[in-house]
Amino acid sequence: MSSYRINALTTWAAQQNGLSKADISLSSAVGDASFRRYFRLTLPDGSTQVLMDAPPEQEDSQPFVSIAKRWHSAGLPVPQVHAANLAEGFLLLDDLGNTPLQDLFTDDATTQAYHSQALLLIAKLQNRANSALLPAYDTALLARELDLFPQWCLSTWLAIPPPESWQAVREQLIQHALAQPVVSVHRDFDAMNLMVHQQRLYMIDFQDAVAGPLSYDLISLLRGRYCRFTGEQFASFVDEFYHQARRDGRLSSSVDSALFLTQCHAMAAQRSLKVLGIFCRLTLRDQKSGYLERLPHFLDHLEDSLLALPEQAAFAHWVNTTLRPAIIQRLAEAH
C-alpha cells in the first residue's frame, strides 16, 4: 500500500472522528484474498474502529455498504458502517476483535457446539434478510463458477483435459442447486468470515451475497477450510438444519430429509469444484500465496460429496484415479 494512500486513509479516518491525524494511531489488522486491506484505528479514549481500504479500481464497495446497512437494520449481526467514502474506497466499521471462529475449534465438543450456533445464524439470515434485493444465483452464475475448475485447475495449472463426464456433471449439479428454495446467501459462510465478539457470532465479508439455494451457506460452513467431518457428522448437521428449516417454513414438507441430504452433497460438490478453480486462479493470476496447499483438503471434500451421489460414479472414479494423482504430483514438483 502506497504512503500516499496510507496518508489519505489516516486523514479521512481522523476527520470522521473530528480529530487530527496526531490524535489517532493506525495498525495493520488483516488482509484477505481480494485487494481489500484492514487497519485498526485507536482513538484517544482507547476505543477502536476498523478501517477497510478497498481500492475502487479493483474493488466495488457499494454492495458491502448496501448489504451491511440492510442486514444491520434487519437485526442481523454484522459490523455497522459508520462512514464510507466510495470514491476513495475507504470504510469505517465496528471493530469485532481478533477472533475468527476457527480459532475456537479446540476440541470436538466445542467445534460441534459452535457449528450448531452457526446453523442458527444461517437460519436468522435466511428468515430476516430480503433475498429479492440481491443478485440472483442463477444458472449463468452457477455455470461460471463451475467453469473455473476446468479453466484454472485443469487447463491452466495441471494441463489435463476434463473427463467425458464433465458436461453431464456440470448440468446435474446446477439442476440440484436450482431445485432448492431461494434465500439470502452470504456465499462464503466459512469460519474465517464469522467473528466471535462478546460471545456472539458476527458475519463479515458478505459483499458477494446473492439470492440462491437454501443449502449453500450450510455447505460453506460444513465443507469449509478448517474441518473435515465424517459422513455421519455431516448428515447429523444437515438433519439439524433440515428440521430447523421445516419448522420455520423455509423448506416445505414436499422435500424429505433424504432428498435434502442429496441436494446438500450436490451443493458441496459444486462448491468444492469452484474452490479448486478459484484457488488456482488466486495463485496463477493474482499471485497470492498459500492457496495451492489447501487443494488436497477441498479434494477430500469433493470425494466425500461424490461418494454420496451414485449418479456421479464415473466422475468420482476420474477424480480418484486422474485428478488426485495429478494434483499430488504437481504439488510435489512445486516444492
Results as ranks from 00 to 15, higher is better:
294 R>A: 05
216 Y>M: 08
160 I>D: 12
320 N>W: 00
141 L>C: 07
180 Q>T: 10
72 H>I: 00
116 S>N: 14
111 T>H: 08
235 A>F: 05
119 L>V: 03
125 L>S: 00
64 F>P: 05
5 R>A: 07
91 L>Y: 06
39 F>D: 08
40 R>F: 00
136 A>G: 01
317 H>F: 06
300 D>E: 11
201 L>S: 01
155 S>N: 10
278 I>E: 09
1 M>N: 08
161 P>N: 13
73 S>T: 12
310 P>E: 01
131 S>K: 11
137 Y>D: 00
230 T>N: 06
210 V>E: 06
331 L>Q: 09
71 W>M: 11
13 A>E: 02
24 I>S: 09
180 Q>W: 08
317 H>W: 02
212 G>K: 11
124 K>Q: 15
274 K>W: 13
185 V>L: 02
45 D>P: 09
100 P>E: 06
225 R>H: 13
300 D>F: 14
211 A>I: 07
216 Y>S: 09
54 A>W: 05
207 Q>R: 11
255 V>R: 09
35 F>W: 10
26 L>S: 11
252 S>F: 08
188 D>V: 03
116 S>K: 10
263 Q>W: 06
197 H>Y: 15
79 P>I: 06
73 S>F: 04
265 H>W: 12
77 P>T: 03
60 D>N: 15
150 P>D: 07
208 D>R: 05
242 Y>E: 04
44 P>M: 03
302 L>E: 05
244 Q>E: 02
125 L>C: 03
84 A>H: 14
40 R>Y: 03
142 L>G: 14
311 E>V: 11
36 R>V: 07
297 H>T: 08
142 L>V: 06
328 I>E: 14
69 K>H: 14
144 R>C: 07
155 S>W: 00
226 Y>R: 06
184 S>I: 06
239 D>W: 04
102 Q>Y: 15
65 V>K: 07
88 E>G: 05
172 Q>R: 15
278 I>V: 15
